[in-house]
Design a protein around this nucleic acid. Structure first.
Lengths: 162, 162
DNA sequence: CGTGATTAAGTTGTGTGCAATTAAATTGTG
DNA sequence: CACAATTTAATTGCACACAACTTAATCACG
């Protein structure tokens, strides 16, 4: 037990650095988006929803959730706020009354024009070139896929390791 | 107006991919930690606090917040929960009665032994080698620094761009 | 010494994020 | 057709994050 103590300690310290770095980066992004989106009256998750709607026009709540990996527990109140802000309308689908269609209002469509400047500012703030950004995105996506797989597998102890 | 439309559209789509990738990765990590930490009875932010305390032993709330970039609005209730779980004690400093010292209990110290296995599982789940992990950490840290600087500068429109 | 500025925690309010549950509609199957 | 299983939103409850504010203690400076 004493023999592997030093290594385990190192891992614990390393882990602190890794998980901290990730959550710090995430919150730093969030903070910058908060500043940039303040004028638009949007939060960062609300902006993500609007991006999806700007691209697809009209979608059931379910599809919005699939695009963003968010469930109805998060989306329902968020969409209510967007509706209260006059940016979207929610209507029960006539074809399938379980489903609720989310549709942009004129005001919601119009907001897109003002949002067009956001990505440029974000890109500038990262201090990274387009290639670096794309590479980072690729890395993050494969990391996400790996983490999801591990979580689904119940996160058993990795086999074959001491 | 029509001339730059396509480019701005592309940027908006690109932005969707980048910001989504980051928040998705962050939440995927969170989800895996949730699974791994369930046995320990800790949430991910609580685990971060415990890591800091395991390394430093005893710290005022202020210092914990500096290590993790969290303010008292987040830490006060979190520390109360850790105290209710019997993992830490909070005591007003005798030297400076504005300050509250957070100290591990015996139970809190003991929990460290069970936490030692977490980083190994996380590392295994990422599917990355130690070098890749360290490089990713470096990238994320510099990204965080850049984003913080931009946010502090009020996120003015980047100069010299159309 | 006294008073205004500063600092440290805590509190309040808003907005996610997610698990668990509920309610309603649809689908599949005998 | 009837009825169980599934699907879709919504709701509830808990735990962050963070802004804005409050309270209490300390500091700084005349």
């Amino acid at each position: 037990m004493t023999t592997s103590r030093a290594t385990a300690d190192d891992l614990l310290r390393l882990d602190q650095q890794i998980c901290f770095s990730l959550s710090a980066a995430s919150r730093a992004f969030n903070g910058l988006y908060r500043v940039l989106l303040k004028d638009l009256g949007l939060t960062y998750p609300q902006y993500l929803v609007m991006l999806v709607l700007w691209e697809h026009g009209e979608l059931p709540v379910k599809k919005v959730g699939e695009h963003l990996r968010l469930d109805s527990g998060t989306l329902s109140p968020l969409l209510k706020r967007l509706e209260a802000a006059g940016l979207v309308r929610r209507e029960r689908s006539a074809r399938d009354e379980r489903s609720v269609e989310v549709r942009l209002t004129e005001k919601g469509v119009a907001l897109r024009e003002r949002a067009l400047q956001v990505p440029r500012r974000i890109a500038a703030a990262t201090g990274l070139g387009l290639d670096d950004i794309l590479e980072l995105r690729t890395r993050l996506d494969s990391l996400t896929a790996a983490l999801d797989t591990a979580a689904l597998e119940g996160a058993q102890d990795p086999e074959g390791l001491p």
